[in-house]
């Protein structure tokens, strides 16, 4: 189960109980899922890995995908490729689009859904769409388990609220009945100068009336912004939306971007306005 080399200790549990035991014994160990973040963000090519690593790739319980009528559950170690292979109809299309935006097949084959959520210090691409889908996360440790909403999983700096010895094991989303879904991303979260922006929108129409409407935006700041007041104001409106509704959306987005401390007139600001207009036009 474990191996030591000159410098690092690698623990490779093969099931969940071994994993929890390993984390109990070594609560300071770094969790290693796909490695696409930990290795791509090294300062130099040969910078070393942390001294203690718990690799999750052998833990079978983390690789399961379960679907019931009410929800879909992804094991935290499910690779993005595996999710893509389920097809765009197997779960909300915006999530599928988000996953496909993350990288070419060489990355998809390694990166995991849990790894994307557990990156500390920044909110990765999947977080806002999972947030809109009201994703719940199962966190387990040797002493028990707890479920948290993804919106409560990161602190103000974007660090995860995982306790020492705790691991993300499952992500549960409700598929919902979304008639219109949107996901767009620009730039890369690793480079603020690329003006990163992720926009997600979900809408449910019922006889040309907006029955549910949600949107979320993230930039390079570790914060998801969602304007629930604006969403509530739009629910019940007929589609296509009236000009006045478009103005309400634009004003709401401007407020959201202000909350993200994005200057008015900047590329990110203009993109967010354009995307919200585009999404509003899809509501017909």
């Amino acid at each position: 189960m474990s191996a030591t080399s000159e410098r690092i200790l690698v623990l490779a549990p093969t099931n969940l109980s071994e994993l929890l035991q390993a984390l109990k014994t070594h609560p300071d160990a770094e969790l290693y899922a796909g490695g696409t973040h930990i290795l791509t963000t090294r300062g130099t090519a040969y910078q070393q890995l942390p001294e203690k690593v718990v690799t999750l790739h052998k833990v079978e319980e983390l690789k399961r995908v379960t679907r019931t009528e009410k929800y879909i559950e992804f094991g935290a170690g499910v690779t993005l490729r595996r999710i893509v292979e389920l097809g765009p109809k197997a779960f909300p299309e915006a999530l599928y689009t988000a996953i496909r935006s993350l990288g070419p097949p060489g990355i998809e084959n390694l990166a995991t859904i849990g790894g994307n959520v557990c990156v500390s210090g920044r909110l990765m691409t999947l977080v806002p769409i999972l947030y809109l889908l009201e994703c719940r996360l199962e966190l387990r440790s040797a002493s028990g388990s707890r479920w948290v909403r993804i919106g409560q999983f990161h602190d103000a700096e974007g660090n995860t609220r995982l306790q020492p010895g705790e691991v993300l094991t499952r992500l549960r989303i409700s598929p919902g009945n979304w008639n219109r879904q949107a996901f767009k991303s620009f730039g890369t979260i690793y480079l603020p100068e690329t003006n990163p922006l992720v926009f997600c929108g979900l809408a449910q129409l019922d006889n040309n009336v907006l029955a549910d409407f949600r949107f979320a935006i993230t930039t390079h700041r570790p914060r998801i912004v969602r304007d629930r007041a604006l969403e509530a104001e739009l629910v019940g409106r007929r589609v296509p939306l009236a000009k006045r509704d478009h103005e309400v959306i634009e004003a709401g987005i401007a407020g959201v971007m202000q909350e993200q401390e994005v200057p008015r007139g900047s590329i990110q600001h203009r993109r967010a306005i354009r995307l919200s207009e585009w999404f509003a036009q899809q509501l017909r």
């Binding site: 191996a3 490779a12 490695g35 696409t36 090519a45 890995l49 097949p105 084959n109």
Partner: peptide
């Protein structure tokens, strides 16, 4: 090709 799937060898440490 890592277990038959395209992967980047610079992202695979020996312990994997």
């Amino acid at each position: 090709l890592f277990n038959g799937a395209l992967t980047r060898a610079c992202l695979l440490p020996v312990f994997r």
